[in-house]
């Protein structure tokens, strides 16, 4: 437990010393969301209809941006090896690294979600549902993405490969999350989608650290 907390503290400290890691994906996210009306036109109705999909697609891409460097620096400076050798279960420590990834990419998106909802004039209901789907969905993006990041950790210029591996695995999240927001927008019940998201969250948070640590050990 103490090792986990120490790792959490160290990773957060490293991130805050390099604020670009947090800010750049967010700016990228904002930029993508801003570009969409420029591409499809400023028609309020159309924008409202496609907003859930756009917001979630942008979230997927922003998550990918920060994934590439999730384990690489630790692999190069040897600290990953030390983590694998420590008596604390390696899966738990990779879980902490996933948590840190979520804290720097997922959490800011949730905090900013009312802003996006306003940009696309979503209803109050849909705004609330958007925040909930982000809360349930972004940890899954971090956890599943970490598997891809671990598999590609020793490959140089792995950005496109990482996207190819990880994006198909994001399909269910995209469907249920964007579907829930659309349904809320239309005044339909969303509990079904939210339960599915919660189930996926439980599944990925429990299993992904194990797969991630196994993938990392291959590369050590």
């Amino acid at each position: 437990m103490r090792a986990s907390l120490a790792l959490l503290k160290r990773d957060l400290l490293l991130t805050f010393r390099n604020p670009g890691l947090i800010v750049n994906p967010l700016l990228f996210y904002l930029l993508v969301v801003t570009l969409v009306p420029l591409g499809v036109g400023a028609n309020q109705q159309i924008l409202q209809d496609i907003a859930p999909g756009i917001i979630w697609l942008a979230a997927l891409l922003a998550t990918l941006l920060a994934l590439d460097s999730l384990f690489r620096n630790d692999l190069h400076d040897g600290s990953l090896e030390q983590l694998a050798l420590s008596p604390t279960p390696f899966a738990m420590l990779t879980g902490i690294k996933i948590l840190v990834h979520w804290l720097i990419t997922g959490l800011p998106l949730i905090l900013l979600s009312p802003l996006f909802a306003t940009l696309f004039s979503l209803s109050a209901d849909a705004t609330g549902v958007l925040a909930i789907t982000l809360l349930l969905g972004t940890p899954v993006l971090s956890a599943v993405g970490a598997i891809g990041a671990a598999l590609t950790v020793s490959i140089r210029n792995s950005g496109a490969l990482l996207a190819l591996i990880v994006l198909p695995l994001y399909v269910p999240i995209l469907i249920f999350a964007a579907g829930a927001v659309s349904a809320a927008q239309a005044g339909l019940p969303v509990t079904g989608q939210l339960y599915f998201l919660a189930a996926l969250l439980v599944l990925s948070v429990t299993l992904a650290p194990i797969a991630t640590s196994a993938a990392l050990k291959i590369n050590l």
Partner: peptide, 14 residues
């Protein structure tokens, strides 16, 4: 091998 196994878990969900 790991990616294949992860994929199999995901195929029914997808």
């Amino acid at each position: 091998a790991i990616l294949i196994i992860v994929g199999v878990v995901n195929i029914p969900i997808i």
